[in-house]
Design a protein around this nucleic acid. Structure first.
Length: 164
DNA sequence: GCCAACGTTGGC
DNA sequence: GCCAACGTTGGC
């Protein structure tokens, strides 16, 4: 048993935004097709918290907080020949790709933009703000999490103390 | 829409 | 195993 860990999940809001997650209530985080990102998914535990980052959009930034509600299991799209995420090298016996389920916790009081993230000293070493970064799943330290939430008008202490 | 960065593919 | 070609990501 260990404590809650923190992550950042990228999503293109034109495809699936934090508001969409709030509307649907829970969502399988499928379609991750990068080994490093997949390995981070596999490290996640139920109860972990994730910053929900809007990428590839006019106003990139952290929009909300999500919670992992199911640990990693095989991404079903890898078996679906009609899906762009189909992977012919995967089999049911040896699935290559994983997904977790996430649920919304709450939106930030306001979007914390990429420019603001870059300006936070606690995030100086955070991969997201380094040039050329493309990973869609990133680990976040407690100090980084706290800084982003604070900038967004939320308290990490209050979120962690909440019942799941 | 441009393009730099970067991961993957596949010929050799 | 090298590495050029290619596809994708994502900020701008």
């Amino acid at each position: 048993m260990r404590g809650v860990r923190y992550w950042l999940l990228k999503s293109e809001p034109d495809v699936f935004s934090f508001a969409d997650l709030t509307r649907v209530g829970r969502e399988p985080w499928n379609g991750v097709r990068n080994y490093q990102a997949r390995n981070f998914l596999r490290e996640m535990s139920v109860g972990d918290l994730a910053l929900f980052y809007h990428s590839n959009t006019k106003a990139p930034g952290v929009a909300g907080v999500a919670r992992v509600i199911r640990a990693a299991y095989p991404d079903d799209l890898q078996f679906d020949g009609a899906s762009p995420y189909f992977d012919p090298r995967s089999s049911r016996d040896e699935p290559r790709w994983s997904m977790v389920d996430v649920a919304p916790v709450r939106p930030l009081a306001r979007l914390v933009t990429l420019d603001e993230l870059r300006a936070l000293p606690q995030l100086a070493d955070f991969a997201l703000v380094r040039r050329g970064n493309r990973l869609s799943v990133l680990p976040v330290t407690p100090a980084q999490m706290e800084a982003v939430l604070r900038a967004g008008g939320l308290s990490l202490e209050a979120l962690v103390g909440e019942p799941v």
